[in-house]
Amino acid sequence: MSDNVHPLRTVHVGTRRAEVDEMLAPVIDLLWRNGFNTLTSCQDAGESNASWVDILPHMSAYVEARRGWAFIDFPLDDGLSLLTALADAGPRDAFYARMTHWAAPDAWDVKVRPRDVAMSAWPQPSKFVIRLLQVCFPVTDLPEIERRLRRHQTGESVAPAPIDWTTVGRSHPEPVSFAPTPAARASAAAPVLRATESSGRTWDDLDPETLADLLAGLDRTHRHLIVERLDLAPRDQHYLQVYRNDDRSFQVEFREGGEDRHYCAYLPPQPETASVDVMLDIVTGWATDRPAWRDTLQWFPWRT
């Protein structure tokens, strides 16, 4: 309901060119360079809409609440991809909590709002569609958004880890420290193992070569392999699972006797043979009680 109130800067990337609010210009530039399409944006929704109050007094609370808050509108898929990129390009810290949790201080306001096509062409019959996703955030988050977009542009990502929920009243999980595993006695019998593929096929007392083949065969169709220790009690409570993600990273879990002794770790994407070698070392170390087998990865309690 008013002309643009903020200074403008020209953003020009390839064939895209637009005049945008100067505070948002660096972010819009990075978004375009990363392939994200944008629609409209504003560096301070409260300032831009202050004139509404003269005509619509009930909007005063909205205007005051949006001072110091910027927004960017995206086509739906671009908006979702942008949120994913920001989450992957940094730690799951207080910034991540603001992005994702409604109760965090200064929590982002992310909206997907249906729109009736008749609103812009009244003779048409009503039909509601979803065309955009709006991301509204405090302007104090602009520097971190820029940092994460630069990391995304260079292909950097941060390995998944437990989320720091301290700003919403939850404790921050710490990595687990394990006591050194004693060396197995030479006279000890070899553990009894059973490996189960995602197809349900099982292998008993498999040799390292077969285990390596099973790990190398994990793909988008056959994603996981479970290896059980059948010589330990209680049954079904001593196992290790390897899960292959779409980006060729791996999630690893192991349980040592019960739900309170269940741990998980993450192996970032690596060359195919390197990933198999690391996984084989972890699985064989776990299966044979090899000292320090846990030291390869950082482990956290499962579902903290």
Rank of each mutant, 00 (worst) to 15 (best):
D44W: 00
L230S: 11
C42P: 13
E19M: 13
R148P: 12
L215E: 03
C264R: 11
R290A: 11
D277L: 11
F178R: 02
L133T: 10
I226L: 11
T221E: 15
N4M: 05
L133C: 09
L8D: 00
Q241T: 11
Y96S: 14
Y239N: 13
G200A: 05
P7C: 03
R115N: 06
L30T: 04
V135S: 07
D207C: 08
W302Y: 15
R303F: 03
C136E: 15
A118N: 11
A265S: 14
P123D: 01
S120C: 07
N245T: 07
E256I: 01
D44S: 04
P182H: 06
S51F: 00
E174L: 12
E209H: 14
P191H: 03
V20C: 10
T181M: 12
C136T: 15
E47I: 07
D246V: 02
R151P: 06
G257F: 07
R67I: 00
Q153M: 13
L149G: 05
E146C: 15
S249L: 07
M59Q: 00
M119R: 15
L80T: 05
T181P: 00
Q251F: 07
W293R: 02
Q43S: 13
R92T: 14
T15S: 14
A292Y: 04
D205K: 01
V110E: 07
V242P: 02
T154S: 14
D106N: 14
T181A: 10
C264D: 13
N4R: 09
H6G: 10
L215T: 05
V168Y: 04
G155E: 02
R147E: 11
A94W: 08
R303L: 14
